[in-house]
């Protein structure tokens, strides 16, 4: 039973990271290798703001929001000076460009924050556990789960209900037509890319008390987030949400049924998913 709750936690943590990744894919059609690095920068920025012992949940969330803003601005810089310039070249050049951006980011994180491990504690209020129907659940897990759900709901609303989403969807579906209709396409893309990078930064801040800060932090989540985005159907936020939960549950079952091979089921599950639903469980989406 605990395994399931924890699977949900893992899933939501991964979703927080994957949300921005799938969004940027929906708009720009690129698999952003640098996403993990921006997640890491978000975490480092938030840790600098909040110190090693945040005073309250609010302080942590505020730090995460500021980190999101910083990373969002960085994202706009990257979009302006790198991605936009090679937008019309083969998509694989985007890949190598984001790979290069990742290397540069990791290099600068090492220079700025050093190599020593840093750690941020969960703030009071979410640093213990609660009993739910005689099941011990760490309250930080509840924090992650609710953060994931909130981010998903907000994102879903923005994309499927609000006018911003309609505009971005229009741009993603047919930029040329959108332009004809009087939508400021470059500004729209800029906002959306900034938004998806900001999501990476936000995830970095929110997950801060869960992980240890090291320059390798980006790698821990990048592959899992990739898998989520692919299983969910590229660019499909709802798909990513479901895929993240599935992934968390698979990982949970893995530790329960095959404790000798931790972390293997995720890959096997992914290969199976890809062969059964080659376009993701909810299909590819241009938002």
């Amino acid at each position: 039973m605990f395994t399931l709750v924890n699977g949900l936690t893992t899933g939501m943590a991964v979703f927080l990271v994957a949300a921005g990744l799938t969004l940027v894919f929906g708009i720009m059609r690129i698999l952003n290798f640098a996403h993990g690095a921006f997640f890491m920068i978000g975490a480092y920025v938030a840790s600098t703001l909040v110190g090693s012992a945040p005073r309250s949940v609010l302080a942590l969330v505020a730090a995460a929001v500021v980190a999101a803003l910083v990373v969002g601005v960085l994202g706009i810089v990257v979009q302006r000076f790198v991605l936009r310039r090679i937008q019309h070249v083969d998509e694989h050049y985007m890949l190598i460009a984001t790979f290069a951006v990742m290397l540069v980011c990791v290099g600068f994180v090492k220079l700025i924050w050093g190599l020593e491990f840093l750690s941020v504690d969960p703030p009071p209020g979410i640093d213990t556990g609660v009993e739910i129907f005689s099941l011990f659940v760490p309250s930080f897990s509840l924090f992650i789960i609710s953060s994931g759900v909130v981010v998903f709901l907000v994102l879903d609303f923005v994309i499927h209900r609000a006018w911003t989403g309609k505009m971005i969807t229009a741009i993603a579906r047919d930029g040329w037509m959108a332009e004809l209709l009087g939508i400021n396409v470059p500004a729209g893309i800029m906002a959306a890319v900034g938004g998806s990078f900001a999501l990476a930064g936000l995830a970095g801040g929110l997950l801060l008390p869960n992980q240890t800060l090291s320059p390798a932090l980006g790698d821990t989540f990048l592959l899992l987030a990739f898998i989520t985005v692919v299983i969910g159907g590229l660019g499909n936020v709802r798909g990513a949400f479901i895929a993240a939960i599935l992934l968390g549950l698979i990982d949970g079952l893995n530790t329960m049924l095959l404790p000798a091979y931790p972390g293997v089921a995720v890959y096997v599950g992914m290969v199976a998913f890809l062969l059964l639903w080659p376009n993701g469980i909810l299909g590819e989406s241009r938002l």
Binding site: T9, T10, F136, P138, N210, T220, Y261
Partner: peptide, 15 residues
């Protein structure tokens, strides 16, 4: 056993 370079160790901690 816990995964190397893993993100979440809670299952194993509970074990």
């Amino acid at each position: 056993l816990v995964p190397y370079g893993g993100a979440d160790f809670r299952n194993q901690i509970s074990n």
